[in-house]
């Protein structure tokens, strides 16, 4: 396997934005390096505003890195790709379409029979059977995120880029969404890159957690979470991984220390 290129390869990647005044640049990413293998579930954590979303947007093709090498599926990223779908925190479900029209959005070129079958399958997978004809405004926030995930899966996305997708949900819904996402990921063998500022969330789900530093951000550490799923949140291995990330970010697990994220 040593010579096979990983699914995602980020090398020496920098990102700067023009600042608000006096022609200075704001350096957001500095010398970021990581690899992600096909089928992995990787979480990216870091302090608020550190640039982890920026990194995800570069992977998704919505932003272009200032310099460096960003290769996904064997080629440099030149723009968004239907095989690699972004799931937005602010929810990109189209409010003028029903649940089933949203889920079928990426499938219009398919024959009708296949489309209907896929839509039905993925609506069932995310637990929205019975809501096919509902409009997003009639659904809760968690259900709308399920629609967006189903829409990505139905379109046969190989990679899901998830930008704090559960950030706006309440605590219990968030827990349920995490379990369901893991179940779907295990059934579908997708590659998931999941950005969050919630360390617990990352350790509950990920194979591997990339910890980013404050701005200008780089990958500060990588924590492998080699624990069976569903994860026991009291298991020593879980607590160890969690505390390790907290200490890398300069905090203890009870929220003390410097640089507490929002």
């Amino acid at each position: 396997m040593a010579n096979v290129e990983p699914l995602i390869r980020v090398r020496d990647t920098w990102m700067s934005f023009p600042g608000k005044s006096n022609g200075k640049y704001v350096h957001v990413l500095e010398n970021v390096n990581f690899d992600i293998r096909a089928g992995e579930f990787v979480c990216i954590v870091g302090p608020s505003g550190c640039g982890k979303s920026t990194m995800l947007n570069i992977l998704g093709g919505f932003l272009k890195e200032t310099r460096g090498e960003v290769r996904v599926e064997g080629a440099p990223v030149t723009g968004p790709d239907p095989g690699r779908i972004f799931v937005f925190q602010e929810n990109g479900v189209f409010p003028w379409l029903t649940v089933e029209q949203n889920v079928g959005f990426g499938l219009l070129a398919r024959p009708e029979g296949e489309r209907e079958q896929r839509v039905k399958h993925y609506i069932q997978m995310v637990g929205l059977t019975g809501f096919e004809k509902s409009y997003p405004r009639e659904l809760s926030g968690g259900m709308r995120q399920r629609v967006e995930i189903a829409r990505a899966l139905a379109a046969e996305a190989r990679v899901l880029y998830m930008d704090e997708p559960f950030g706006a949900l309440d605590f219990l819904t968030r827990l349920k969404m995490r379990n369901d996402l893991i179940r779907i990921w295990q059934a579908e063998h997708k590659t998931v890159i999941f950005v969050t500022h919630d360390i617990e969330e990352a350790v509950q789900m990920a194979d591997r957690v990339l910890v980013m530093s404050r701005r200008p951000a780089t990958v500060q550490a990588e924590v492998v979470v080699d624990l069976p799923r569903p994860r026991d949140l009291d298991a020593p291995g879980y607590l160890e991984a969690r505390d390790k990330i907290f200490s890398i970010m300069g905090m203890d697990a009870h929220g003390g220390g410097a640089g507490e994220p929002k």
């Binding site: 998704g60 723009g79 968004p80 239907p82 690699r84 972004f86 937005f88 990109g92 959005f105």
Partner: peptide, 11 residues
Amino acid sequence: SVYIRAAQNFG
């Protein structure tokens, strides 16, 4: 802009 970005993502 999220609608535009989602649409572009689907090609």
